[in-house]
């Protein structure tokens, strides 16, 4: 096939996405930037106000609080869910009796739509009647007001996120199947313990998968919205469960300050970009790619 024909087919096959990317991704990003310099609610035409939205944002303590909440949440949930998902995957890798039952059990929570998840956990965490506190109480562990004590609301969502991390586990599981057993056996013959084998063979072999999951997890956790929105529509108590995406949504659709919301969106994009690039930079040094994949 000659180059021109090949290029033509290339364009033809990728055409839907060229349109999709321009219309549903690039245009909104550009428009968001433009609106972020305007006073805008869909009912009224955009009115240019320069940097006023950004100025207001930097002085807006709720903005900072929501940002802080979101970063704290990401910092808590990302390592925890990575460790749990990886541990589950390692436990389930190889021959284990009842493997498919376990697999289904651990994956099931991530199948549940967010609203039911939130409703269910609200019921589990609920004050003295919530089953979690009842169980803690019966084991003589001091109980806490998960839903109404500002110190614990974020933990409640972290627990929920770790519980729902089944698809991350699945991706790790798939990655682990690529680790050649010959390598593991060789190191076992060399006298390496289980922990050493994991540290020196398994982790390097699946490091690209870890990086991928961590990056996707980071992007996801910075956007956390639906679960806290259903549990604490106003982010109360004391806005301890008020996250970036919630404040953005409220500004856009409740307070009708769409320009302000767009400015928040632009900053969020920059934040994610910087953090992701930083992660990739770290990853570059640590991640081991098989055959340069």
């Amino acid at each position: 096939m000659n180059a021109r024909r090949e290029a033509m087919y290339g364009y033809l096959f990728t055409l839907p996405w060229m349109i999709g990317m321009s219309v549903f991704m690039l245009y909104p990003v550009v428009a968001s930037c433009w609106y972020s310099f305007c006073d805008y609610s869909v009912l009224k035409p955009p009115m240019w106000i320069g940097l006023a939205n950004y100025q207001e944002l930097f002085q807006d303590e709720v903005f900072w609080q929501a940002t802080r909440n979101t970063l704290v949440f990401a910092m808590l949930s990302l390592p925890l869910s990575t460790v749990v998902a990886l541990a589950l995957a390692v436990l389930l890798n190889g021959k284990v009796r009842g493997q498919s039952v376990y697999r289904a059990l651990f994956f099931m929570p991530s199948l549940v739509p967010v609203v039911p998840v939130a409703v269910l956990w609200f019921w589990l965490f609920n004050g003295d009647h919530g089953i979690i506190n009842v169980m803690l109480h019966s084991m003589h562990i001091p109980t806490v007001n998960w839903m109404s004590n500002p110190a614990y609301t974020k933990w409640a969502i972290v627990v929920l996120t770790v519980w729902g991390g089944g698809n991350t586990m699945l991706i790790y599981l798939a990655g682990l199947q690529d680790v050649p057993t010959s390598l593991l056996e060789a190191s076992e013959l060399d006298g390496a313990s289980g922990a050493q084998r994991f540290r020196h063979v398994t982790v390097p072999m699946i490091s690209p998968v870890i990086l991928f999951n961590v990056v996707m997890g980071l992007i996801g956790s910075l956007q956390v919205f639906a679960v806290p929105y259903v549990l604490w529509p106003t982010g109360s108590p004391e806005r301890s469960a008020y996250f970036y995406a919630m404040y953005l949504f409220d500004n856009a659709f409740k307070f009708n300050k769409m320009g302000y919301a767009c400015a928040m969106g632009v900053l969020m994009f920059l934040m994610i970009l910087v953090l992701t690039l930083a992660l990739l930079k770290v990853g570059e040094r640590k991640v081991h790619y098989q055959d340069g994949g």
Partner: peptide, 15 residues
């Protein structure tokens, strides 16, 4: 993949 949905929300709604 790095563009968060909230960024797209307002312009897509207008669109």
């Amino acid at each position: 993949m790095m563009i968060p949905f909230p960024v797209l929300m307002v312009p897509t709604f207008s669109l």
